[in-house]
Amino acid sequence: MSGVAAQTGLDIREVEQFLYREARLADEHDYDGWEALWTDDALYWVPAGGDDTDPERQMSVIYDNRNRIATRIKQLKTGKRYAQSPPSNLRRLISNVEIVTVEGTDTVVGANFLVVESRERGTTMWAGRTTYRLRRAGDDIRLAYKKVVLVDSAQALFTLAFLI
């Protein structure tokens, strides 16, 4: 696949800029800004125990439709979501960005990430690969799907209450 998803007009630079922005909004707990990136048919999925589980039959760390994303954000915004109050100090690196394929109106993108989370418990590293489905909406890009496969997905995980 070339760097340009010709049919949808998303080029790799534009894709990268979107991923970096999404990462920054999550790192900085800009909950409204982050939520606004999603489409109405959004799906936010963090599988457990590998990357090929059936989320309709198997447990996942996160398996949020658009409604549940909204609930998650509302809970964070109460200020009493203790697992994120105080919020973790976060910075993440996004790399190895590839446009994987184009499916209809969606551009499927893969990228690696490394998040460093600091909170009173200590510093925790979260790494993995994310698959995104991006969709053009006017001048903007929207996020329709985000699947986050942690390298530790089969291990016992500390609380993961920030936006991964």
């Binding site: 760390v61 809970q75 697992a83 995980l157 609380t159």
Partner: peptide
């Protein structure tokens, strides 16, 4: 899934 585990809206707290 919504309630429990590392990102659960109950158990994480």
């Amino acid at each position: 899934i919504g309630s429990v585990g590392p990102a659960g809206m109950l158990l994480a707290d």
